[in-house]
Amino acid sequence: MVLGAACATLATVAALRSGPAPHEDGSGDGGATGGPTAPQAGQALAVARQEFGLLSGGGWAQAWDLWTPTAQRAVPQAEFVRVNTECRPPVGVPYVIDASSVPDPTTVRVDWHRADTTGSATLSYRAGRWRFAPDARTLADYRPGADRLIQNRTAAGSCH
């Protein structure tokens, strides 16, 4: 059942990625016909489900690939994978999206829970794609050498 949901989510993201390429400078949509297409909140929710599915399934490198370029520059992929590998969060426990809001046409906020943990996340539409935009606290937790997540997970008893 989880595999089926993951496959369906992957197909959704693949379909979202098959659109026109962005301009080299990252602005707008590089499609040859017409202007940029308006972002759709439903597409943002599909990316959120993809991100959460990858995180709960241990696909950390692929989850990082869905981040905004700014977040990717702040936290190298190798560091994100290292932290999650060294102190593995509970794999297989799903994230559930409880609510969403659209503060503006290029931003979608989702509220989620995973077991007893709750949170919210932001998705940002840039260069013709929805991307996961980790907040400053999350980025700080993953900065090279910070190891805050490992320490927090160890204290909570969720680090192996």
Rank of each mutant, 00 (worst) to 15 (best):
L3R: 12
C7T: 13
C7M: 14
A8L: 10
A8Q: 10
A11R: 15
A11V: 08
T12I: 03
A15W: 06
S18T: 13
P20S: 15
A21N: 10
P22Q: 04
P22I: 01
H23G: 08
E24Q: 14
E24N: 11
E24C: 11
E24R: 13
G26Q: 07
G26L: 05
S27Y: 09
S27N: 12
G28N: 04
G28K: 02
D29S: 09
G30Y: 01
G30Q: 09
G34Q: 11
G34K: 10
G34R: 12
P36L: 00
T37D: 10
T37P: 11
A38T: 10
A38L: 05
P39V: 01
P39M: 02
P39Q: 01
P39D: 03
Q40W: 00
Q40Y: 06
A41F: 00
G42K: 03
Q43I: 08
L45P: 10
A46K: 06
A46T: 05
A48W: 09
Q50V: 06
F52W: 02
G53C: 08
S56K: 04
G57L: 03
W60P: 06
A61S: 13
A61I: 09
Q62L: 07
Q62T: 06
A63S: 15
W64V: 09
T68K: 03
A71G: 07
A71V: 05
R73H: 10
A74R: 11
Q77D: 13
F80N: 02
F80Q: 02
F80Y: 09
V81D: 03
R82C: 09
E86N: 15
E86C: 12
C87W: 02
R88P: 07
P89A: 02
P90M: 01
G92Q: 07
G92Y: 01
V93S: 08
A99Y: 04
S100G: 05
S100K: 06
V102I: 11
P103L: 03
P105N: 05
T106G: 12
T107Y: 06
V108G: 08
R109T: 15
W112E: 05
H113N: 04
R114H: 09
R114Q: 14
A115C: 00
D116W: 07
G119P: 04
S120H: 11
L123P: 05
Y125W: 03
Y125M: 07
Y125V: 06
G128P: 10
G128L: 06
R129Y: 10
W130I: 05
R131H: 11
R131V: 04
F132T: 10
F132I: 10
D135N: 08
A136E: 07
R137N: 14
A140W: 04
Y142F: 13
R148I: 00
R148A: 11
L149E: 00
L149G: 03
L149Y: 05
I150N: 04
N152D: 14
N152W: 08
N152P: 00
A155K: 13
A155H: 12
A156F: 07
C159K: 04
H160R: 13
